[in-house]
Design a protein around this nucleic acid. Sequence first.
DNA 1: CAGGATCCCTGCCGATACTG
DNA 2: CAGTATCGGCAGGGATCCTG
Lengths: 132, 132
Amino acid sequence: MDVSGLSEHSPEACRARETLDRVAEKWTLMVIALLGERTKRFGELKRECVGISQRMLTVTLRGLERDGFVIRTVHPEIPPRVEYTLTGLGRTMLEAIEPIIVWTAAHGDEIDAARASYDERQEPARTGQAAG
Amino acid sequence: MDVSGLSEHSPEACRARETLDRVAEKWTLMVIALLGERTKRFGELKRECVGISQRMLTVTLRGLERDGFVIRTVHPEIPPRVEYTLTGLGRTMLEAIEPIIVWTAAHGDEIDAARASYDERQEPARTGQAAG
DNA sequence: CAGGATCCCTGCCGATACTG
DNA sequence: CAGTATCGGCAGGGATCCTG
């Protein structure tokens, strides 16, 4: 693997953090991934994003729409029907994130292990002074 | 490009968000990218992360160490010298993030444009009722 | 059905001061 | 040099109620 060009990325990392910030916005990735399957309605997204509130789904979708990641289509009917579609930009973004999804599936457990190991090394130092 | 398997990622997106959350932690990506160049000292990272406080650099590095992304090496000298090195895990993670860095460099401006366009469509609706 | 408005709590993060 | 400890601002995000 070639990591020799990574030093070039340090300045760019600044800008990339803004991108990461959106995607890490708690529900953004989930919504993008779901819309990656196909166009969906508000209620459908609501059901699939288990635990999300109306407010957060609305806020998330507005942000995605504003950033050009999704298109919001309102069908003038009663009851109202609103559909959300991933744009081309949104799709390329989802593709850019895929490596992280794959990485997490592959290495997520290593993080848990490292964390548990770290905590074991630290916690005794705070609680057990008797273990000299 | 193949996006047909994306639906498989919707559940995994949940877990991947935790990963994104770390990386989006404001200074994490910058630190990882800098350590991707080579092993560095605390002070060196501090200088290169323009605007970071001691506290945030320490907190960030502790988190990365805990998650197994960096190794912290204390040299028992006076004055103290502490070096931070990216682990193999950290390196694979950095590679997983690279696409986002590249993506941002390529499409960052489109977001700005989309945002400006959206704001133009929305703001007049709130302020200028005279523009019938 | 889709979403606007409001209240409130929590945690991130920055500034500052102190230490070995 | 490389931290630690404390305080405080502010925004993210959840719960709840109301509407066309």
